[in-house]
Design a protein around this nucleic acid. Structure first.
Lengths: 214, 214
DNA sequence: GTCTATATTTGGATAGAC
DNA sequence: GTCTATCCAAATATAGAC
């Protein structure tokens, strides 16, 4: 049963990604995964050892590339002295958007990532923090350079808000119904454009300087 | 085993809320729920009929009140002609914050709500849309009045972003480590303040007027 | 590496005594 | 309304043939 151009391992990863996105980590069973991947049930334990290890691999496969691309985009920008806030936001948001365009299953992975935030699982949090913390700090430094009037604390609060909005938008969780005539991909690009625009304005808001009143 | 001041039904709802917040709907078992509630396993099926009905009740209990309070706050504002954008945002965000302060389990519920967005479960989506859609439309009308230069579509995109950021912030998903000396509650209030400030700036951003280039 | 078959655990739901 | 005991389905994981 290996007429597919993808290896058994890759097919499992793809199917798991898709099903975790739809049903969650606990909600998607290995039986569903192996059926969708058209491999035998026992293959998961053979190739990954356990369901938990499989989950980890689903993350690692995409995060490594996403991190690299974000930092690459940031590096190219940081050279230029006339970098705009929008450009840096685009460097952060763009690779996530590109990923969500990947035919394979990137769109599903973005939803999996959003789920990961919802899981308060400390192990997963630590894993993500170790990956994203690094990237976020580099972006924060660049944002700080462009927004010198913001305190470090104020900046981090705002970046956290941006991350939340990005997660939500990329995962297509919106309450508001998307018009049917707008295709999936066009919808994502619109979402990214609106997000960059909105986030830039939010980041540029004057610091509230919370002085004691009276 | 009913020495508690809360009824069996209420104890089950509270325990379910807390465990769903931590482990998700599929991840939390009825055995865990009934053990935490210190009631018998069979009590869930007796009082609610099934796990799915229990989940629905967890939502209904809080959403009814949250909706009512948001609309009440909005109604009081809408009377005045000099309402600010920040005040309307506060009317939307404040009740969610208050809920998250409820000693009982409101904080847990806010996380459950965030999970509900991550679940692409159509049944749940419809249920929430029927409740929140109504509230959101009323708020949208008020925002539209305060931001007449935004097209309806532009406004909805932005409100969707605000909802995402709110969901994320209230559920305390932030990557950035909170300082330990800052108490849980103070953290939430700070989050709400930052969110209102950020969102107001984002909503006020000039419309991009996406004219065809060239 | 892949398969069948199966061991083992866990979960949702219910029957029936009290 | 509450409890014990139990049924049944589904899940993870593994053993062992090929």
């Amino acid at each position: 049963m290996n007429s597919s151009p993808f290896s058994t391992k890759e097919r499992i990863l793809g199917a798991a990604e898709s099903l975790f996105a739809t049903h969650g980590f606990a909600g998607a069973s290995l039986r569903q995964v192996t059926a969708a991947a058209k491999v035998n049930l026992a293959a998961v334990n053979y190739h990954f050892g356990s369901k938990d290890k499989l989950i980890e691999e689903v993350f690692r496969r995409r995060l490594d590339e996403l991190n690299t691309r974000r930092l690459g985009a940031l590096g190219r920008l940081a050279q230029k002295p006339d970098t705009t806030l929008e450009a840096v936001l685009e460097a952060y948001i763009g690779p996530a958007l590109d990923l969500s365009r990947t035919g394979g299953g990137g769109a599903a992975f973005v939803r999996v990532l959003a789920r990961a935030y919802a899981e308060h699982n400390e192990t997963l949090r630590k894993f993500l923090s170790e990956n994203y913390g690094h990237v976020l700090r580099q972006f924060a430094a660049e944002f700080q350079r462009l927004l010198p009037s913001l305190s470090k604390e104020e900046l981090y609060w705002r970046l956290d808000i941006v991350t939340g909005a990005l997660t939500y938008a990329m995962a297509d969780f919106g309450i508001i119904q998307r018009k049917n005539e707008v295709a999936e991909q066009a919808h994502r690009e619109q979402a990214a454009d609106h997000l960059v625009h909105f986030a830039a304005a939010g980041l540029r808001a004057p610091s509230p300087h919370p002085a004691p009143r009276g």
